[in-house]
Design a protein around this nucleic acid. Structure first.
Ligand SMILES: [Zn+2]
Ligand SMILES: [Zn+2]
Length: 800
DNA sequence: AGCACGCCGACT
DNA sequence: GTCGGCGTGCTC
């Protein structure tokens, strides 16, 4: 008896799965993990098959219409992993599966179907059984090739892809990418060709250009080459083909980059004695061949990369796959370069910035085991690496690993669970690890591997400058005399200086000197930041902006006090102090948007500036050898965040900045020089900091001693939000047990953002499982209200 | 999430 | 009378 019933989940908030009949023609191809096309209500949706059964009690079943990939997108291990993510982070399996796939997988549009045997068979071979197969073949007989998009339009979509994959499997057709096409001139006569080019020149210069390229390169070229070397896109090729001026043929793709080195040819890395000592422990874990998480805690400035490379090389020699996670997309380039230069490897770099076609191509190569090393940001933790042997999580403490939209997973934690399932080793690298990982290492859940600095490579000098006195004497003063002095020296020596200030703009707020009025955002409960360059008031939470006022709208006063130092003001100060120095400012904290990404890459490469100034991102972005001074303009802006992790985050930040120094000094300006975090950082004593911080957190029952779940309600009408939050809170109180603490509901920090009021309930408890069950139970009972959205965050990182 | 269904007030 | 707001519940 065949499995005729498929259980399908969809990317909807419902955790439910739906049963469908698998039609005759699709039984072979519809498997667990397949992506399918199916009707739900009045809609047609893409879903995922999570199970196959022989029968069901449910009546009035609908049919699955089509299967989207030639083989299941998820294997059983990935299904297990995504199910864990859904259960742990309290969201639907469908949503997790959807975000685990490369985004925007509508890749099929750029592919072509070709007839393998160009002779039309009449009658059709016996093997062709389905109507759809027949239709596809008939369509191809008319013209040797068809784009998949054309076929979708021409034939009905139901069962189309299943038919295509069947025909492909039987060897009648082949799916080729648009860029695998060979473009050939149809006109052999040079005179006629010249005439054609002339005619096209005015109306379609790009097409004329393509003809010229072909003429000068032997009359033919692969579409991929045309794009890569000449910048001529596939659309131009299509148009010329329609004119009949070029013809296309399909050759087997000669993708040389795909072929990785054989495992024997993988190089080894030269390790220093210090590194070799640390590596021995990693090697033992790799040799063991079982799950283990190693926290690689390096002293600031010690290079972890050689250890990663050596571990990767060892894993590849065992014919296993590697996943390397980095905190930001732009950091993948550096990792790729290292792998290429040292091991001679072409790793697959998977991230959201690739085109759909490219991303899907790489994803398939990884899925099919043709690429065994994947580099990427947090989403890459779901890359379908075959036979996984090692996951590297670089800068494991970085909060970018936590996803701030559904599913709100933490890539480091998912990596650990994945490694357990695959019996792989996890390497967590950091010079100031998260206290969660540090704690896990001290309880024996992880093993700790320390990497110290090379003996000839001393720790940088740390100077703490208390600026309490300074500010009171001259409010306009931003840089202490000591920092100015060090800057001068640094520049004289021809070294670069890095300045960090966590606030963008010129002033974080402006205030009327006469009546005390502070311009606020109309959508958020925050003051507007003054940007001098654009002469605008900007909200950093919703993007609202308006012309900076010259006259106070309240009292018509015209004198403003600028409060809170932003990077623009620091830049202005630097320019007046060092008019000859080249100052480069990098001030955005997201890498979203093309422009910021480009500037970021320029920044991390363009090391010609004398002074580099910026916000959080500079700590991650820079990779310069010439840095002689790092100055933190105001450590307090990080230290005083309303977050129980403020101290930890400050330590991370300072350490990351200090790691950029090969030799030199790091100067920290602060109002609270007596603070424990600052004092420990002065001696680079993370262990001392962590011990005290852990003790404090134990006292207050904060992670890692407890688990948190944050529930945020938001909506335009504050009364509705509050009433729902209170209703939920009552449900919690009814169902809760002693070990759970319910904090709130209280107005979330920054109560109103983007016009939405926010109310937060924080659950604290010993067991994450118990908390999650409680939340799940209450959420089912809660009757929501239109206009009030509820967000559940398990293990929240950002407390805002 | 969407979408239909149904219930109620208000306006041609 | 019916148009359109929104709460409710379902989708195999
Ligand atoms: Zn005023
Ligand atoms: Zn705002």
């Amino acid at each position: 008896m065949q499995n005729r019933i498929a259980q399908v989940v969809f990317p909807l908030p419902t955790g439910k799965s739906f049963s469908y009949i698998v039609p005759e023609g699709l039984t072979e191809r519809v498997q667990r993990g397949s992506r399918v096309w199916a009707p739900l209500g009045s809609r047609l949706l893409t879903g995922f098959v999570v199970d196959l059964k022989q029968e069901t009690e449910i009546s009035n079943l609908k049919q699955i219409l089509d299967v989207l990939d030639p083989y299941p997108a998820f294997d059983s291990q990935m299904l297990r992993l995504t199910r864990w993510v859904a259960e742990y982070y309290l969201c639907s399996l469908g949503e997790v599966l959807n975000s685990a796939l490369p985004s925007g997988v509508r890749f099929r549009g750029s592919e072509y179907l070709i007839l393998r045997n160009p002779e039309p068979h009449h009658p059709l071979p016996d093997a062709i059984k389905g109507k759809k197969e027949e239709a596809v073949l008939e369509s191809l007989f008319q013209k040797g090739t068809r784009s998949l998009l054309t076929l979708e339009r021409e034939l009905r979509r139901d069962g189309l892809y299943a038919a295509i994959y069947d025909l492909e499997q039987m060897g009648y057709v082949a799916v080729k990418s648009r860029e695998g096409r060979l473009v050939r001139l149809t006109e052999g006569d040079p005179g006629v060709l010249e005439q054609q080019i002339d005619e096209l020149k005015r109306k379609a210069p790009r097409q004329a250009h393509l003809l010229r390229i072909l003429r000068e390169n032997g009359g033919q070229m692969a579409a991929l080459q045309l794009r890569k070397n000449w910048g001529v896109g596939a659309d131009v090729v299509d148009r010329l083909e329609r004119r009949g001026l070029v013809e296309l043929c399909f050759e087997e793709p000669q993708d040389s980059a795909v072929n990785e080195k054989t495992s024997q040819g993988i190089a080894e890395v030269n390790l220093s004695p210090t590194q070799a000592r640390a590596f021995r422990q990693i090697k033992r874990a790799l040799d063991g061949g079982h799950y283990q998480t190693i926290l690689l805690q390096s002293s600031p400035g010690a290079d972890r990369t050689p250890l990663y490379l050596q571990a990767i090389s060892a894993v590849l020699r065992r014919e296993k796959g590697v996943l390397m996670l980095v905190p930001e997309v732009f950091l993948t380039a550096r990792a790729f370069k290292h792998l290429k230069a040292t091991l001679g490897l072409q790793a697959a770099v998977l991230h959201s910035r690739l085109s759909d076609v490219e991303r899907y191509r790489l994803w398939r190569q990884v899925r099919e085991g043709r690429k065994r090393v994947v580099i990427g940001p947090r989403s890459a933790v779901f890359a379908p690496v075959v036979n996984l042997g090692l996951i590297v999580v670089e800068e494991e403490q970085d909060s970018s690993y936590k996803c701030e939209s559904n599913p709100r997973y933490h890539a480091r934690d998912v990596a650990i669970v994945r490694a357990k399932m695959a019996d792989a080793v996890v390497l967590l690298g950091s010079s100031a690890p998260s206290l969660e990982s540090y704690h896990n290492a001290s309880t024996g859940k992880f093993s700790l591997c320390r990497l110290s600095r090379e003996v000839n490579n001393p720790l940088p000098k740390v100077t703490i400058v208390d600026i309490r006195g300074l500010r009171s004497t001259n409010a306009r003063e931003i840089l202490s005399p000591l920092v100015c002095e060090r800057l001068k020296l640094c520049l004289q020596k021809g070294k670069q200086a890095v300045l960090f200030q966590n606030r963008r703009g010129y002033a974080t707020y402006i205030q009327c000197s006469q009546c005390g009025f502070v311009p606020q955002c109309q959508n958020c409960q925050v003051s507007l930041t003054y940007h001098q360059e654009e002469h605008q008031m900007v909200c950093h939470y919703c993007g609202f902006r308006q012309e900076a006022p010259s006259i106070c709208p309240q009292c018509l006063g015209h004198e403003w006090h600028f409060g809170g130092v932003g990077t623009e003001l620091v830049e202005k100060t630097l320019r007046s102090l060092f008019p000859k120095a080249k100052v480069l400012r990098l001030d955005f904290d997201t890498t979203k948007g093309k422009q910021s990404y480009r500037r970021l890459l320029q920044f991390s490469q363009g090391d010609r500036a004398d002074i580099l100034l910026g916000t959080r991102m500079i700590a991650k972005a820079m990779d310069f050898p010439r840095v002689g001074l790092v100055a933190i303009v105001l450590a307090d802006s990080c230290l005083n965040l309303p977050d129980f992790r403020a101290g930890e985050k400050t330590f991370h930040l300072l350490t990351q900045l200090a790691s950029q120094l090969t030799e030199g000094e790091i100067v920290v300006q602060t109002y609270s020089s007596g603070d424990w975090t600052i004092r420990c950082f002065k001696n680079f004593d993370f262990d001392k900091f962590a011990r005290r911080e852990l003790a404090d957190r134990r006292q207050l029952n904060y992670p890692p001693w407890s688990r948190l779940v944050s529930i945020v309600f938001q909506g335009k009408i504050s009364e509705d939000v509050i009433s729902i939050a209170e209703k939920y809170s009552r449900l919690l109180q009814e169902a809760a047990f002693e070990t759970v603490q319910i904090l709130g509901p209280s107005e979330a920090p920054l109560g109103k953002i983007k016009g939405a009021f926010r109310c937060q309930i924080l659950l604290k408890g010993k067991s994450s499982k118990a908390l999650r069950e409680l939340v799940q139970q209450c959420t089912q009972k809660l009757k929501g209200k239109r206009g009030v959205r509820m967000t559940i965050d398990v293990d929240p990182v950002e407390m805002m």
